[in-house]
Design a binder for these strands. Sequence first.
DNA 1: ACGGCTCCAACT
DNA 2: TAGTTGGAG
Length: 697
Amino acid sequence: MPVARPELSDSRVIAHVDMDCFYVQVEQRKQQSLRGQPTAVVQYNSWQGGGLIAVSYEARKFGVKRSMRGDEAKQVCPEIHLVQVPVARGKADLNTYRNAGSEVVSILSRRGRCERASIDEVYLDLTIAAEAMLADNPPECLETISEDVVQSHVLGLEEVGSDARENVRHWFTRSDASRRDKLLACGAFIVAELRLQVLEETEFTCSAGIAHNKMLAKLASGMNKPAQQTVVPFSSISKLLRTLPIKKMKQLGGKLGTSLQIDLGVNTVGDLLQFSEEKLQEYYGVNTGSWLWNTARGINGEEVKERLLPNSHGSGKTFPGPRALKTVASVEKWLNELCEELSERLQSDLEQNKRIAHTLTLHAHAYKSNDADSFRKFPSKSCPLRYGTSKIKEDALSLFQAGLREYLGQYNVKISGNQKSGWGITGLSVSASKIAAIPSGTRSIMNYFHNQEETFPQVKLSSEQLIQDAPLLSPSEDSLESGGHLTLQSLEPWIACREENEETKYSMPLDRQEEDKDTCKEKLPDKETSICSSPDAEVYRGWEKDQTESSGDYLTVKIRDSLESEEGKRKPNKEKGMSTISRYFQSQLSGSLLKAEHAGTSKLSESSSLSACQSELPQENSPARGESSVDAHLCSQIKLKRPAWSYDIDEIDQDILNELPKQIQEEVQAWLRPQKRPNTVKRDLGITRYFLPAKDK
DNA sequence: ACGGCTCCAACT
DNA sequence: TAGTTGGAG
């Protein structure tokens, strides 16, 4: 069965905002003299002037293109200013651009759901805001319309006429427009405001598309650049798509688009209209077939996902041709560099966003010169991610060695040392994924009960489960003010200070599990303190409150009473679980709730707040972040602090969760199963077979 | 075996 | 789940 077909009456207001030659703008802001100049950002100046990764519009006039070499660019545009991407640890370092992207996102996310689509693009769902504007303050009632809005492009209007501007102004204000047009008009107002705010607060310009779905918004944002916006009214869609080259459509720029051209003779999106949905499904499978059919009609039901932060971090480098790595030692050296960068970024993510990553993956490209099957792909390998730079290095190397053995095949025993081993590594990357919000129900739990108390005198937990005599927790004023044990901050140090001197449970990387098991184990500490709960670890971790810094009470709440060990012996016991959790909440309420209010306004507590980006400050006082000493300092500082809580996230009884308020359930869920994304949109990109007819029909 | 470095998502 | 593949900027 085909995927659920999106509504024909899709009247959402979706915007796609795209920064104009973003890296160039970032460099121009840093170095104001570059403004207005033909400029490009280049990496690796050594070989042929390096590769261009961003080109200013002034330079584009000269025919300078991305993917040119620096030298080429100089030829067509001798005046061009080439700015190098920062280099750290022997590789390009994109952090300044990532941070600048975060600045922008923090502004663009103000008016509706915001999905960070890449380092310099977002999608916005402005439906609610547009509806509100239409209800309260519709454009047709406005006396004057701001210049920025009138400068919008509206597809389908005669822009060549003597009075293009007047046409646009009229389109925005006419009272007899359809509701969907009016909503788009409101969307365009909102986007214009947002873009202005971005400019004022960051000095960056951007372009935008406003339409009823993501596909069309994306298409439109690229139509008038730079620093302009384009609206796609419903009535303009068919004409727009009729002549649009198929490859211009997002997702069709690659092999699928080529297959459409070659195999079906489809050159424009409009050409697709002649094929029935069934026919397209025959060629490309049900999902892709339906997607194509819808796309031809401008229909696209993809939701804008709420995501301000990336789902993974990676650090990689290529070693082209002669620079290929040929010894394990050189691979190790580079892996170390990559891991250091990755670890640093994981640390910042932890500090700024309170998130932890759960999986470490290694990718490599390799060649074999001698062998017959030398075109085999180097397999990617992953393992649980342990925080701490040296742990990451260690694990990454193990993953590499596992991959290499597999790559070389079982007969090739000698993999190390020899210069003439016949293999070479042309690309390496390490990445961290499955990033989830820190196990910090604390905030929302406290917020929840805070609110509850205003509404109800007593929490809604069955009374027999409220154990009054449990002297569990009554934090001193002091501990609350310093972040106490109820805030994220108290949790952070425990997770943040994962460094080498600690005792840490060893999650054995794949390759060592078999052969080196014994030798490995001896070197390893046996006490479990790892963030990652490995599935086979027989561990108990309660919630602990440290005694060094707070009032001296000691708390151990068993959040997990039902334990399912590997042998699966014990059976769930809801009652017990409930009672302990209830005790915890109860003690919170009776003991510390009111004080928590003060904590909420204290400086420390503020600094621990979960702001997505720390860049909402005016940029004058937010210079580019220092390189790395910050982290080191913070970490050492943190080490002195106590471990706050520990927990065993895999062992929480689902029944217990179900008893909790929805808000908390969601938060806990997120940390229970980080890998599972809520609401996976049934999107269809099964782009695997292009030449095979009808398999799945 | 060069465009380099990321990121996302679907599929198996 | 881990690993592969395609796509985009």
